[in-house]
Amino acid sequence: MQDLPKPDPVFLVEELRDRARETAAELNEDIPEVALQIGAARKFTPQDTLEWQAADCIEDLLRQLNDRPG
């Protein structure tokens, strides 16, 4: 079995943020306008997605690694 190259963490974060924006847009397409008007629904933001949260985790890990003494 061939090992895949390890992508750069910064690249992964950018890709996850892009995907989060796309996911939020897709989710918002399915919300009826009337549901928004009467307050039964709200628009999703990219920060509401798992992709965005994964990007945050990677950034936190990178920050912790960079802040390590030694």
Rank of each mutant, 00 (worst) to 15 (best):
P46G: 01
Q47Y: 09
E51M: 00
I38T: 13
V13H: 01
E15V: 14
D8M: 02
A41P: 04
L16K: 11
L62A: 09
E33S: 10
Q64C: 04
D67E: 14
Q2S: 13
P9S: 02
L50F: 13
D18G: 09
P32T: 03
E33V: 09
R42W: 02
L61Y: 07
E14L: 14
G39Y: 00
D67T: 05
D30M: 06
Q64L: 08
I38E: 09
E33P: 10
A40P: 03
A35F: 09
A35R: 13
R68P: 02
M1N: 04
L36Q: 03
F11E: 15
P5K: 15
E29F: 02
F11Q: 15
R68S: 03
R42D: 07
Q47K: 14
Q64I: 08
E51R: 01
D48Q: 02
D56M: 13
C57A: 06
W52A: 12
E59Q: 13
R21P: 06
Q37K: 14
N28E: 01
I31P: 03
A40E: 09
V13C: 06
K6S: 08
Q53H: 07
N66Y: 11
R68F: 07
L36I: 04
R42I: 04
G39M: 01
R21F: 05
R63V: 12
I58L: 05
P69C: 10
E51G: 00
L27W: 07
A40N: 08
A54I: 08
D18A: 06
L50K: 03
L65E: 07
Q47A: 10
V34K: 12
I58V: 02
E26M: 05
N66F: 11
P7G: 01
A41Y: 05
P46V: 00
L65C: 09
V34Y: 11
L50M: 14
L61F: 08
E29S: 04
L16A: 01
L27S: 05
E26L: 08
L27A: 03
D3Q: 13
L61S: 10
I31D: 06
D48M: 01
Q37E: 15
C57Q: 05
A54S: 13
E15L: 12
D3V: 10
F44P: 04
Q37S: 11
E59S: 06
A24D: 04
G70I: 05
R21D: 04
F44D: 14
C57Y: 11
Q47R: 11
D67K: 07
L12A: 14
N28R: 00
T45R: 13
R19A: 08
E29V: 08
D67S: 11
T23W: 05
E15T: 14
R17K: 10
R68H: 03
R63I: 07
L62G: 03
I38C: 10
A55D: 00
W52C: 07
D67N: 10
L27D: 05
V13K: 02
D48C: 00
P7Q: 06
E22L: 07
L61C: 14
P9W: 00
